[in-house]
Write a protein that binds this DNA or RNA. Structure first.
Lengths: 303, 303
DNA sequence: GATTGTTCTTTAAGGCAATAATATACAATC
DNA sequence: GATTGTATATTATTGCCTTAAAGAACAATC
C-alpha cells in the first residue's frame, strides 16, 4: 500500500556508479571523523587501511569525490580535500548515499508505524519495495545485524516487536543507564589522553556553532560515537557491542524526534563536563555523572 | 592445514534427508523444553506453532522421528512420543544434527585456537572446509548473528578478536555480572509463578540425578535457558538480547572447560535458592544473590 | 470439533556462467 | 622512501533456471 516503487533499475547503471558515490561518502565521513580540513592530502593507502579496503575501491571513491567537487586531484600527486568535510558542501556526495539509504529508511518507517506485518516473506518485500532478490538479501542481512529482523525457520522473516513498541525508546535508555555507568566503573577502565583530546575537540566544535548546521541524523550519530568511544574504555567488547546494537535501534526512531537545539546544547555541555572528570581519572564520579546524564528523560531521544 | 575434508557431497542426498533429521531434532528439543513424557501426543499444528513452521516440515520431522524409533505413529491418529525426550535414547536423531554442526564446531575450534587468520575470504573458507558457497553463506550468516564474525566492506570476513582472546571468558562474566543483577533490579521486574514453577521443576530434575547423565553441552545449555528466562522478567528485550549474545559466544569455549560435577551441583543449588527468593518477590535480594552467583570465579565457564 | 491426510500454490535454495569488484604486485613518479 | 599509476589475479555478485521446501486450503477421519 505504501510501498515506494524505487526506480526499477538493474541496480548497477544508475546515475554514474552508485558504488563509487557510496565510497566517496565513506571517505568524507572518515575525513570528518578525523577532523581533516580543506587542503589536507587524501592518501590512498591510509584511507584504505582506515576503511578496511584495498586501494582500488578507494580510488574510485576519490574520483567520485573529484566529480562532486569535494576533492581535487593532480596526476602523480594524488588527491586533496577541496572543502571542509564539515561544511554543508559535503552533502552532494552524500545525496547519492542517501538515495541508497532510501529503501532502508522506508522499511524502517513502515515497521515503526506497523504498516508492515511482523512476519513477511522475501517475495513480498521484493514486490513491495521493488528490489531484486540480491538487493533485498543485502538489506535484510544488514537489518538482521542491527537486530530488528530475524529469519524464521521456514520461509520469511520476522521483525522484532522491540522496534515498533512505543516503550522501545524508554527501554533502550534504561538499558544504557545500566551498562554505560557500569562500564566506566569496571576495574580496568581507562581512556587515553589522546582519545579524550579527540573527543573533546569534536564536542567543542559541535558546541561552538556546528550544532546549528547539523541535521538531526548527524547530531545523533555524533552522540553515539561519543558514548561508544567512552564505553570502549572498559576494554570489554561486550559492553561496546551491546551499546552499538542499542544505538542502531535507537537511530530508527531518532528521526522522529524533534530538534530541541537548547536541549542538545545542554547535552553536549554534559559531554564536555564528563570528559573533564574522565581526564583526571575520577572514574567513580564519572560513572555517576554518566548515570545522571542518561537518566534525564530528555526530549525524545538524543544523546 | 587443519581443515576437515567433510564429505564432499551435494549437500542434499546425504543419509536419508538431512533436513528431516534436523527437524526431528527440533521437535525433540521442544519436547524436552516442555517437559513431555513418553506417550504424550505430538500434535502437528501445535508443534508447528511452537516452532514457527507450517505442518509440512513438522510432518517430515515426525516421520524421521518414527524412523529413529523416538515416536510411534498410526494412520489418522498422529504421532506419540515413544521415549522420554530426556533419556539417552534421544541421541540417535541428534546424531544427524551433530553432523550438521560439525563444520561449525571445527571452525569455532580453529578460530579459538587462532589457526585461522582474523581476516579470511569466502573462497578460502570454502576450500578449507570443503563447503559450497551456499552452505558457507548459511554458516557465516549464523556466526554473524552470534556476533563473532562480520563482513568486511570489501571481500572477506573478519573474526572477532573477542573469541580467541584468553580473557574473553572473564569479560563475558564481567558483563553478565552487570546486566543480570541490574535486570532483576529494574522497576518493572516480574516473573510469573508459572515460569518459576517450570524453572524450578527443571533445575530440580537436573539436581536430582540427571546431571550425571548430561553432557557438558547440555548442562551449559540448561544453564543458559535458566538465566535467559530470568532476565526476560525485566520485560526489556535489550537485556535479554545482550545476554543471548554473550551466551552464544560463551558456548564456544564452554566445550573446553572441565566437567566439575561438584561445582555444577552447587551451581544448580544456587539456582534453586534464587528461585525461592524470586518467588517471594524480594527482588533486591535476588539481584544481590545473582551478583554473587556470577562473581564466583567457578571452574571454567558454566552457569 | 479437533486433528490428520492430501493436494495445490507459493517461496526460496542451489548450482552455473557471465560480469563486476576487490586485492595484489610491481613499475613509475614525486 | 613514500605515494601514485597500471596490469593482473583473485574474489564475490548477479541473474537465470531448476528443484526442493514450505505454506495454505480443504477433504477425510477419529
Amino acid at each position: 500500500m505504501t510501498a515506494s516503487d524505487s526506480s526499477r533499475q538493474p541496480a548497477s547503471r544508475r546515475g554514474g556508479s552508485e558504488r563509487a558515490e557510496h565510497l566517496a561518502g565513506l571517505i568524507m565521513a572518515l575525513a570528518r571523523r578525523e577532523g581533516m580540513k580543506a587542503g589536507d592530502r587524501l592518501i590512498e593507502q591510509r584511507l584504505a587501511d582506515a576503511l578496511d579496503l584495498s586501494r582500488a575501491p578507494i580510488r574510485l571513491g576519490l574520483k567520485a569525490l573529484e566529480t562532486a567537487g569535494l576533492a581535487r586531484g593532480e596526476p602523480h600527486r594524488g588527491f586533496v580535500l577541496a572543502k571542509n568535510p564539515t561544511s554543508g558542501a559535503a552533502q552532494p556526495a552524500l545525496a547519492a548515499v542517501r538515495r541508497r539509504e532510501q529503501v532502508y529508511a522506508t522499511i524502517a518507517g513502515d515497521v515503526l508505524a506497523s504498516r508492515l506485518p511482523a512476519d513477511v516473506t522475501e517475495a513480498e518485500l521484493m514486490r513491495r519495495y521493488g528490489l531484486s532478490r540480491a538487493e533485498l538479501q543485502r538489506l535484510l542481512d544488514r537489518i538482521a545485524a542491527e537486530g530488528w529482523v530475524a529469519r524464521l525457520p521456514g520461509y520469511g522473516w520476522r521483525f522484532a516487536e522491540t522496534v515498533s513498541s512505543p516503550e522501545a525508546h524508554a527501554k533502550a535508555m534504561a538499558f544504557r543507564a545500566v551498562i554505560e555507568p557500569a562500564a566506566i566503573a569496571q576495574p580496568g577502565f581507562a581512556l587515553s589522553q589522546d582519545v579524550i583530546a579527540r573527543l573533546r575537540e569534536r564536542q567543542q566544535r559541535v558546541f561552538e556553532g556546528e550544532l546549528e548546521k547539523m541535521t538531526i541524523g548527524e547530531v545523533f550519530h555524533s552522540g553515539c560515537e561519543f558514548h561508544e568511544e567512552i564505553i570502549r574504555g572498559a576494554g570489554n567488547p561486550f559492553f561496546l557491542e551491546s551499546l552499538r546494537r542499542v544505538n542502531s535501534i535507537r537511530r530508527l526512531f531518532a528521526y522522529r524526534s524533534f530538534a530541541d537545539r537548547d536541549g542538545m546544547r545542554r547535552h553536549v555541555r554534559e559531554h564536555l563536563r564528563l570528559l573533564e572528570v574522565l581526564e583526571t581519572r575520577r572514574y567513580a564520579e564519572a560513572a555517576e555523572l554518566m548515570a545522571k546524564h542518561l537518566q534525564r528523560p530528555l526530549v525524545a531521544g538524543l544523546s
